[in-house]
């Protein structure tokens, strides 16, 4: 009985051996596909993360631009110049123009 089974296995093994190249090839293809798939998901995840970072930075950029414009508004600067720095409107009689030749 055991001998019969062994012989049968041997036969199968010979059979398997004949197609081993194909099995290895299939496994290699499958492995490559799995690896590629994992890489693809990683890249997709990175893209999503970078897009989120980009969106966040763009928002921050817009907020900062808005803030710069608000802070540099002529109304605000004029108020600060007059009230805080006690500046006065220009008096041309006290202005000296230097000619550059």
């Amino acid at each position: 009985m055991i001998r019969e089974k062994t012989l049968e296995l041997k036969k199968d093994f010979i059979h398997i051996k004949r197609y081993i190249k194909f099995w290895v090839f299939i496994l290699l293809i499958a492995g490559t596909l799995v690896a590629y798939n994992q890489y693809y998901f990683k890249v997709s995840k990175d893209i999503i993360e970078f897009n989120q970072i980009k969106s966040k930075l763009m928002t921050q950029n817009a907020m900062l631009k808005k803030e710069i414009s608000r802070l540099s508004s002529p109304e605000r600067i004029s108020k600060m110049a007059v009230k805080k720095l006690k500046m006065k409107p220009v008096n041309y009689s006290k202005v000296h123009f230097i000619e550059i030749k």
Binding site: A62, M63, K65, K66, S69, S72
Partner: peptide, 16 residues
């Protein structure tokens, strides 16, 4: 789109 004045100062901006 953003609206700028002659000197590049922002007059209107869309904030996300």
């Amino acid at each position: 789109g953003t609206i700028y004045d002659k000197n590049g100062k922002i007059l209107a901006i869309s904030v996300p």
